[in-house]
Design a protein around this nucleic acid. Structure first.
Lengths: 174, 174
DNA sequence: TACAATAAGTTTTTATTTGAAACTTATTAA
DNA sequence: TTAATAAGTTTCAAATAAAAACTTATTGTA
């Protein structure tokens, strides 16, 4: 989708991540892994994905250490694909996706699946953005600044962006 | 990517959402919109996306009410693309994506961008999954049940899935 | 042991999607 | 009035995806 040189300035942050997990099927494969699929045939059957595409996606997810390809048993030639810590930490992403769909695609009382807190069997909290003090934030309450990994251009664009946002609309030009 | 009939059983939940926002570029376009881009040329310049592809993506995002296409001024033929409420609520998704990339792709002290709470200019909380009681949950603390919108097959698969998970590994067969 | 079935891919062929670049038609600015 | 910019559309080549058949292990069973 994107050439590496095109990652800069500002989009690099997310574009690079999307190159790893954003291809068609990849998210669904990761989700299937959460749901307990481990073997090639499990993924294939449950997702109905073409086998050659599945091969490619599994390879890429393994290359990026989202999945680990481990022999079924010592020395076996068949493998299982299991989530790494890196893969497991995509949970917030997966649940954000699900919650958004529940609200905006399927609608209240038509959710296809519900995530529960295993201990109490109660639905988990809806995914939200919180301040460090624990206050839920709306999009307008959030701003962006350049991080230590920002390129020159990214820094510049972010500054412009913040200027544009901060300036009150009705401020007189002088 | 997917034919609608293939949404069932379990993957429908997320697959349908991915059909709306999962195509290459769509997420980046939404992100650009957060960052203040509104016009065709803004998106095109900042993302470096091919114009015909951009046209297609904007159409689809509008059709799905992520973006709203409004005339620049009363009766004008040029338009701006602005996020709808539905679009704005993708914020948790975008930030989940960013935080994950910060940790696993760029690494500590190399984050390209940082989201701040505007009021206090402090980094926001890392996206996490919480129980309804406010306790942070790990993947293993979460389980899934069929919602009211689950198909028959989905219900069945989820049940199998929970059985598989709940049964202690070392339980004797009889 | 042998036979069939299943698992895990690979190969081949076809269809769909992308991407780049040139082209068109408004609108704005000088 | 002319030039420049904006917002697309069209065309065509290259890359990707999908479907189906094929291959090679491994497992289960009579």
């Amino acid at each position: 989708m994107l050439k590496p040189e095109k990652y800069d300035p500002l989009k690099r942050s997310v574009a690079h991540v999307l190159d790893i997990i954003g291809e068609g099927w990849s998210i669904l494969i990761i989700r299937e892994a959460y749901f307990g699929s481990r073997r090639f045939e499990d993924f294939q059957r449950h997702l109905g994905i073409a086998r050659n595409i599945l091969t490619g996606r599994l390879k890429k997810l393994c290359a990026n250490e989202i999945l680990d390809r481990v022999p079924i048993k010592e020395g076996a030639k068949r493998h299982e694909y299991v989530l790494t810590a890196k893969g497991k930490e995509l949970m917030p992403l997966l649940i954000s996706l699900t919650h958004w769909g529940d609200k905006w695609v399927f609608g209240e009382n038509a959710e296809p699946v519900i995530f529960l807190d295993r201990d109490h069997r109660e639905p988990i909290k809806k995914m939200k953005v919180y301040s460090s003090r624990g206050v839920a934030l709306r999009p307008r309450d959030i701003m962006v600044v350049a991080g230590p990994g920002a390129s020159q251009e990214a820094q510049q664009r972010i500054e412009e962006l913040n200027l544009a946002f901060d300036s009150p609309v009705d401020e007189p030009p002088g």
